[in-house]
Design a protein around this nucleic acid. Structure first.
Lengths: 345, 345
DNA sequence: TGGCACAAAGTGAACGTTAACGCAACGATC
DNA sequence: GATCGTTGCGTTAACGTTCACTTTGTGCCA
């Protein structure tokens, strides 16, 4: 097996020249047979294709990208891959780009600003046709690099801020406000905010500020915040909720930054003997696949990740083809389930 | 904003030559200042770096890859990005590769064999340093292409079959057997298998056959199968479980192909008035983040995705550096929770 | 002072493809 | 029968790096 790979023949990957020599035509003719087949005689084309097939020819896009004008790479920069927060955006984005023969080059910053600069630089070094990146809040140097690159930049997920070029997403402040409004409408008054709010997760911060503003506007007492810097999981939610209620027994509603965290919150409340939604209401954000399957089922905000991915792909193609930059708002949805359904007020 | 981007200055991205001209040295010296800094005088190096910073120079890796021997790309081919099945593998793989300055180029086949061939070809056309791919069962042409490429191929997630070069994962047949053994140990006798088993999801098929073999070995009646071709979600689980129990009321245990599907199974059983684990036991596979938070909490198999990602990265680096191909088994774990804890037998 | 080693920088040729251009052969048009 | 457009292919020159060599400069020792 090893021999196969180290074998000299195997390492001599075929080039256009190999094919050309074998068929007895010029390199350019072989290239044309690939890019513009109808400019080559049918019979010759057939022989060229046969040779390619036989030699397992795979075009070298490094050379193609260097020589040609297009590059066929789309750089995708996300802040997280954990718990499918952005996985389905990538999923639909990638499959929509595939139809245009665009290849995804992925980078994951893990909410680290230094990493973001390094990764954007690394992505740009592949001379992509466009870059899609999560969020609109980037370090100044990142913005400078992206602008200087001269290619379409599509910012995804968030639209609440300065957009570099084109954006597809929604305003997270409004999400926080909607959380507050719903809780208030259900009769909750003492709202707490809980979850993982990393320093570089501007979206989480916007949702929190939207929540605070809406609560203040409704004349509610100040929001109690209990957050952590680390990534969110059920265990974190369980711990934070337990601590929260220990120090603030007056709380009657918890707004959570992610569904996954709130699963742990529900578990903590059960252990503490609190009834949901009667004693305490719980609302979250994200619409995790299990949100409808926990007990009680979880009221949450459902962002349309697949649509964002798809529309981002369309925006990329449109911008590459020269259309104007624009901001596309993708609606989210409040999904009311048991955890806030205090019908017996 | 548009003007910025279409601006001629902006499109003239700086090259090594631009820097060289500005500093007054040869192109090669600038290149060396990047690749082998200690071969360039400190003061000159400082001026070169300053010029790069000022012009926002980003190296062109297309050219670098074409000219040099390394390529710094690792192609990653997954079969799905939905519901974090492989997202956390990619997450840990990517972050481990980052430390070696290797860039991930991502492709998602969505369990489509034709797509797989097309995507592998596309990935290979970027002349990656290595390819990591989910599974060991590929169409013959894919195997041929991968072998002919002469680069390290790391097959992830599954090790139960013919390995092209190097593999990191586990034998899914054994997972199925463990599911059966656990159910049998808990006193269940009439086992059903339920879930999404797509034509190209060989791993799911292996788990099923392991389950069947172990049940047969224990003298149990034949496994009742109720599967679907589409992707798995709670709604599918709910529908399949309802249908299953309608036709097979004798069933006393359900082995499920994914946690997410089994969430729906639990919901269906509750609606049907079946007690879990007393009347029916439920075991699944995947260890979704919510598995411990549903009611009853879910007994499942926990594959160590992060470890697979990390070890795959290590295997890639090792193979690039010339070490021998090998197969690495990454242990999974049976996580026993409430859904099969029939202590009052 | 000649010789040599070594550090620092330059030269020129690749790498595999694409794109602009050139040119021969051929049929159609006036 | 000279002109012209078309088809089908070849020639040549990029694209931006890296790499193997070569050249120049500098200090050191015999």
């Amino acid at each position: 097996m090893t021999i196969d790979i180290i074998d000299k023949e195997a390492r001599n990957v075929p080039t256009l020249a190999s094919i050309a020599e074998r068929v007895g035509v010029s390199v350019n003719t072989v290239s044309r047979a690939l890019r513009a087949p109808n400019t080559v005689r049918v019979e010759l084309r057939r022989r060229i294709n046969a040779a390619m097939e036989e030699l397992n020819y795979v075009p070298n896009r490094l050379a193609g990208g260097l020589s040609g004008t297009r590059s066929d790479i789309v750089g995708v920069v996300v802040t997280s891959l954990y718990y499918s927060e952005f996985a389905s955006i990538i999923d639909s984005l990638q499959s929509a780009l595939l139809e245009r023969d665009l290849q995804v080059m992925l980078a994951n910053t893990r909410y680290n600003a230094d990493q973001e600069l390094r990764l954007v630089r690394s992505i740009l070094s592949w001379r992509p046709a466009a870059v899609a990146i999560i969020g609109v809040d980037h370090p100044p140097k990142v913005v400078e690099l992206l602008k200087a690159s001269g290619i379409p930049i599509i910012e995804m997920w968030d639209t609440g801020g300065d957009v570099i070029d084109t954006a597809v997403g929604f305003d997270h402040t409004q999400v926080g406000a909607a959380q507050a409004d719903h809780l208030i409408a259900q009769g909750y008054r003492r709202i707490a905010f809980l979850g993982s709010v990393r320093e570089n997760d501007k979206r989480a911060q916007k949702r929190l500020s939207g929540l605070e503003a809406a609560a203040a506007a409704a004349g509610l007492p100040e929001i109690t915040k209990h957050t952590a810097q680390q990534g969110g999981n059920p265990e974190l939610g369980e711990r934070l909720a337990t601590e929260l209620l220990e120090h603030h027994p007056e709380i009657d509603a918890i707004a959570c930054n992610s569904d996954v965290v709130s699963f742990g919150v529900l578990r903590a409340l059960k252990k503490l003997g609190k009834r949901v939604p009667e004693d305490i209401g719980v609302i979250a954000f994200g619409d995790n696949e299990a949100a409808g399957c926990v007990t009680p089922s979880l009221t949450t905000i459902r962002p349309d990740r697949e649509r964002i991915g798809k529309l981002t792909a369309e925006a990329i193609v449109a911008r590459i083809n020269g259309s104007e930059p624009r901001i596309t708002i993708v609606d989210w949805q409040l999904v009311v389930r048991e955890s806030t359904q205090r019908s017996t007020l």
